[in-house]
């Protein structure tokens, strides 16, 4: 397997896609949003439960590829317990990491580093970013479906 393909499908990504964390529906969610990638038909629903301005819980239901499911799984792991502002900042940072023109610098212990392999696959960047955009909409209480297009 070539190096960049190995970068994309790292063991941690495959593990998250096989056994995603926080996958499932949520009763009495404080926020809920739908994400849609009309080019491929993939869909995700993200739920959040808030405790004041803090994310007490987050769950997602996804019909998508390994990259989108792993990204959603890692996202929920990382953001549960964070404040809404912290979560928003992490979301912006993540999207910058994948879309910045120059290769980003990341710390060795950065949980999101595993997803940087996506940078070499422009057609797949939207798979990784859709869960994050959908979470942002869920926190906003936005009724509009999030779409990659």
């Amino acid at each position: 397997m070539s190096t960049d393909l190995h970068d994309l499908y790292q063991e941690i990504i495959l593990k998250h896609s096989r056994e995603p964390k926080n996958s499932g529906t949520m009763d009495n969610a404080d926020g809920e949003a739908n994400g849609n990638n009309p080019l491929c038909g993939d869909r995700i629903v993200v739920y959040v439960k808030l405790d004041g301005d803090r994310i007490a819980d987050a769950k997602f239901e996804a019909r998508g590829c390994a990259i989108s499911v792993a990204s959603a799984s890692m996202m929920t792991e990382l953001l549960i317990g964070k404040t809404i502002n912290e979560a928003r900042a992490e979301g912006s940072r993540f999207i910058d990491l994948l879309t910045s023109k120059d290769p980003p610098e990341v710390a060795d212990d950065d949980e999101l580093a595993a997803l940087l392999g996506v940078r070499q696959f422009p057609a797949r960047i939207k798979c990784a970013t859709l869960p994050w955009q959908t979470l942002a909409a869920a926190m906003d209480g936005s009724e509009t479906e999030v779409t990659t297009e």
Partner: peptide, 11 residues
């Protein structure tokens, strides 16, 4: 998922 199949086949 088909997208993962497509990316790997492309390589």
């Amino acid at each position: 998922h088909p997208h993962d199949v497509g990316t790997i086949l492309d390589h």
